[in-house]
Design a protein around this nucleic acid. Structure first.
Lengths: 152, 152
DNA sequence: TATTGTTATACTCTATAACTATA
DNA sequence: TATAGTTATAGAGTATAACAATA
């Protein structure tokens, strides 16, 4: 795609904007339902649920948040009893993060709201179009990962 | 698309994540080149450049940022000499925002960096795929606009 | 010395409520 | 009274640097 078309498309601005809208609405609905996490915290919780027993550094790499951010968010999740920190038996400085029953329950509590939002957001989009779009988004993610420098 | 597939796709999380990555890299490159604006500020500047003479409230609606945020960001842009505030002749409480020569220059100064980032982000994506993806993103944006409540 | 995680710090963005000015 | 914009305030995220502990 040439620069003229790119400029017209404003693909980057669109991505940022749609992402922010999604986050903003998720925040509103979480608040409305007294769900105690922010979207970012829910993302980190999801990563821990997906891969139980990760080190913080690995969570950092998956969620693309830097180490201080991960420390801060996991402090919050730990304080709420959603995750636990356990020192690795051998390497005591390395800390494993595990999800608790309470954490799983919290994840599942928010899930219907989250799914409903996703459903609403793609209303009127055909499965085929969505699959194609997801493929492009994945490609963009891979491309950007190479360029992103964070303190991991 | 049924809930099972939606859950698997995590479309919402993907949108938020790709948007954040784009913003983060833009921030890094702006910093590296001593460009004095954040991506959000650049977005607002772009809206003003697109539609010179808008009221703040209209900028609010276009950029989907609430009134206090727009006040804050326009304060910054005004202090830098990139935009001017002018009271409407008749309705003195309504304020027109205009871009200055300096503001246009700033926009153009950052443009190559911005275009380069967009180009890099869609590397390996065919024009056809990108067009289709943009169409879907637009649809999502329209869907979400209905759901978003902000103080405009 | 390199890695993992924490702490400190500063700034921006977001979000809500309350306020002023004005039509 | 409704609208446009400002101010106040609080919280969360982001980003960088510096630090401690440990392999």
């Amino acid at each position: 795609m040439d620069n003229k078309d790119l400029l017209k498309s404003r693909i980057g601005m669109k991505l940022v904007r749609v992402g922010k809208m999604t986050r903003a609405i998720a925040t509103q609905r979480f608040t409305k339902e007294n769900f105690p996490l922010t979207p970012e915290q829910y993302t980190v919780l999801t990563a821990i649920l997906d891969h139980d027993g990760l080190y913080q550094r690995q969570i950092s790499a998956i969620t693309l948040k830097d180490r201080p951010n991960i420390t801060r968010i996991i402090n919050i999740l730990e304080k709420m009893g959603f995750v636990t920190r356990t020192s690795d038996v051998n390497k005591r400085k390395i800390i494993k993060i595990n999800i608790t029953k309470k954490g799983k329950d919290a994840y599942n509590q928010a899930l219907p709201t989250v799914l409903e939002l996703w459903q609403e957001s793609v209303e009127g989009v055909s499965d085929e179009e969505l699959q194609s779009c997801l493929k492009v988004l994945n490609k963009i993610k891979v491309n950007l990962e190479e360029k992103l420098n964070i303190q991991i």
